[in-house]
């Protein structure tokens, strides 16, 4: 919609006012890493972060979300969306959120996600520090980030604030934003183009090439065995993933053993239990009993299955899985290399 400009000093005043009146999340330092957390004062917001441990989806699609409250035989849906702002979302996470929006909306719209999402304002920011394991410069390179409300680009003395929706435009009222000069807008565009080139092009193939070769490798058991042999099936690659959205649904009682919640929890297709069914009498059938089958399923989900729907891979190159994996076997860059050279 519009391009605004704000000086660094006024930006701090803007944040102060904003956090006093709204629920604002953003990247904050936690020891030597970063996490998305509530911001209560401007200095906490670290727009120079590289990547956060968990992606920002946790704010509107929390790891534990009540679906239903029950009491005896009566029940009510748990829908309690809150107005909230997420500041400083990087482009790879913006892409991931856009994918989740689509997936939760398609076919059967999921209100527990969508209502939260609708009340959330997403403000992106330019990437100032490139995380060591990230490869967003070459993951789904053709997919443009969209679905966010606004975008901040840091210039030397201030920020260019691009508003894309009314939600973002409403924030401008909180401080002394002025109309951005043409040169400032151009400078912001240059910064965002330049950073893409700075991110090492770790994937030497197009998404389409990767998808085709990966699908063809489905039956290459030797390859999947080799890639997954050190897998602990812990699911860290799933729980840190910006685009993973699988969940489990469980009931739990309160102490009265009468009332309680039906709750969904983030789940992980890499865990042994994920596709297991009980046949009765203690017999089970696990549809992905082997490590290599689970490993392959994750790779297919990220690189192949969803591409048609999403217009690109369901991997945005944040590198979180690579960082989180204890055995260091989850890095899509290495997996793709192995597949392409197999």
């Amino acid at each position: 919609m519009n391009h605004h400009y704000i000086t660094l000093k006024d930006f701090n005043l803007f944040l102060t006012k904003l956090v006093n009146q709204k629920i604002v999340y953003g990247p904050v330092a936690r020891k030597n890493k970063f996490v998305f957390d509530l911001i209560s004062s401007p200095e906490q917001l670290r727009l120079d972060y590289d990547v956060t441990i968990l992606p920002p989806k946790k704010i509107f699609f929390p790891p534990k979300q009540h679906l239903l409250h029950f009491d005896g035989e009566s029940y009510k849906d748990c829908l309690d969306p809150k107005e909230q702002i997420i500041m400083g979302v990087h482009n790879y996470d913006i892409k991931a959120i856009d994918q989740l929006d689509f997936l939760f909306k398609e076919k059967n719209p999921d209100d527990h996600y969508l209502l939260n999402r609708r009340k959330t304002t997403i403000i992106g920011s330019n990437i100032q520090t490139i995380a060591a394991r990230s490869f967003w410069g070459s993951a789904g390179a053709g997919v443009e980030p969209k679905g966010h409300d606004g975008f901040l680009t840091k210039l030397k003395d201030g920020f260019v604030f691009e508003t894309r929706t009314k939600k973002a435009e409403n924030l401008v009222k909180f401080a002394k934003f002025i109309k951005a000069k043409k040169t400032q807008v151009e400078q912001a565009a240059q910064i965002n183009t330049a950073v893409k080139k700075k991110c090492p092009a770790k994937l030497a193939y197009s998404s389409a090439e990767i998808a085709i070769k990966t699908r063809l490798a489905f039956k290459n058991n030797e390859l999947w065995e080799r890639l997954s042999k050190d897998c602990f099936s812990c699911g860290s690659c799933n729980t840190t993933c910006a685009t993973c959205y699988c969940f489990d649904v469980q009931d739990s009682w309160n102490l009265d053993q009468k009332s309680g919640f039906r709750t969904r929890y983030w789940d992980s297709c890499m865990t042994v239990e994920f596709a297991k069914t009980s046949l009765g009498g203690g017999a089970v059938h696990n549809f992905r009993a082997l490590r290599r089958e689970r490993f392959r399923h994750r790779v297919m989900r990220k690189l192949v299955y969803l591409n048609d729907k999403l217009g690109g891979p369901a991997c945005v190159g944040c590198g979180r899985c690579a960082t989180a994996c204890t055995a260091d076997i989850a890095d899509p860059v290495n997996i793709v290399k192995e597949i392409m050279e197999a």
Binding site: L103, F104, K107, N108, D110, Y245, C246, F247, D248, V249, R264, D267, C269, F274, A275, K276, T277, F287, H297, M300, V304, Y305, L306
Partner: peptide
């Protein structure tokens, strides 16, 4: 399959795509 949500979201019952 292990259909946890029944509405095509939770992922448990997936066969390929």
């Amino acid at each position: 399959r292990r259909m946890k949500c029944g509405v095509g979201k939770c992922g448990h019952c997936q066969i390929n795509n």
